[in-house]
């Protein structure tokens, strides 16, 4: 319990730092961002008016506290390019990103863990080499390439699944596979090596000596400990999924947070950029906390040590 509270406090501090760093990065650009956004032929009066509306004419520390206060009230300002409150835009986009990320994570973990266990159970067999070969493709293929190839084969050529958009649950299948592909590869490899390592432990010999079958030992004795490194990796993967979502959402034209962030950069839209990046980082930090908590739950040795 104490440890969870400590982690939570740490996360809050990190998020404060994230907000500060993001603020510095976005505001450090020389010149007036509004003038840059509106181009060379903009009316100076209009630039001044918008700068005033955004509060850009105030002292920099004052700007930061106003920004922080607004963020705590979930007010991320109004998007310059889209003319709507950033909070509204993100509320509309978030469910899509969440669905995509959850589907991708489920796909990655289920296939990764399954392939990893099978590979370990039949290590050095044909099926092991096949799975590990495929997982290598997963590790090395850039997300945009997988996404485009999947789109080409299953949507354009075979007409089995929708090519883009978010109209039905079917639309999420290809993006989820594309996004989860890398993650599935690393989960499978780690699951395999971790399981093989645990199988060397003494207590596994004991289990065999008690007359358990190979499958029984694997499932009831080895798996739980072998999961620990995989869970740790899941935390890191969560952040990688959010990174990959930017690309996946772009290729499949999904209206999500990642695509908003990309649009914000192309339109030099400061409120939208700050909002989407802050929100994504919050999601990544929460994902990390969740994995930490899961780890504590799975490994009583750590909880007892405290």
């Amino acid at each position: 319990m104490k440890q969870i509270v400590q982690r939570l406090l740490q996360a809050v501090l990190v998020l404060f730092g994230v907000a500060l760093l993001l603020f510095i990065m976005v505001r450090v650009i020389p010149g007036n961002p509004v003038a840059m956004m509106m181009g060379d032929h903009a009316d100076p009066a209009a630039i001044e008016r918008i700068s005033h509306e955004l509060g850009l004419d105030r002292p920099i520390h004052e700007q930061f506290f106003i920004y922080l206060r607004n963020v705590l009230r979930l007010d991320f300002g109004t998007s310059i390019t889209l003319g709507r409150p950033v909070a509204d835009l993100m509320t509309a986009a978030f469910p899509n990103t969440l669905k995509l990320a959850v589907c991708a994570a489920v796909f990655a973990w289920v296939t990764g863990i399954f392939c990893g266990i099978i590979s370990a159970a039949y290590s050095n067999s044909f099926i092991d080499h096949l799975f590990m070969g495929i997982s290598l493709l997963g590790l090395s293929m850039p997300v945009f390439l997988i996404a485009m190839v999947l789109q080409y084969v299953f949507a354009y050529h075979l007409h089995i699944l929708p090519i883009s958009g978010t109209d039905s649950w079917k639309s999420f299948i290809l993006p989820a596979i594309a996004l989860g592909w890398n993650c599935a590869g690393s989960v499978a490899r780690l699951m395999r090596s971790s399981l093989l390592e645990v199988m060397e432990e003494d207590y596994i010999d004991t289990a065999y000596a008690k007359g358990r079958s190979h499958a029984g030992v694997l499932i009831f004795h080895a798996l739980r400990n072998a999961f620990l490194p995989v869970v740790t990796m899941m935390a890191v993967q969560f952040s990688a999924l959010i990174s990959g979502a930017v690309i996946t959402e772009t290729v499949f034209s999904i209206n999500g947070i990642g695509r908003l962030a990309a649009a914000a950069i192309n339109g030099r839209d400061i409120p939208l950029l700050q909002g989407t990046v802050l929100f994504s980082t919050l999601a990544a930090v929460l994902g990390n906390l969740l994995a930490d908590w899961l780890y504590l739950l799975l490994d009583p040795r750590i909880t007892e040590a405290i």
Partner: peptide, 8 residues
């Protein structure tokens, strides 16, 4: 720095 998703 590590809290940010690297791509973002």
């Amino acid at each position: 720095v590590l809290a940010f998703p690297s791509m973002l």
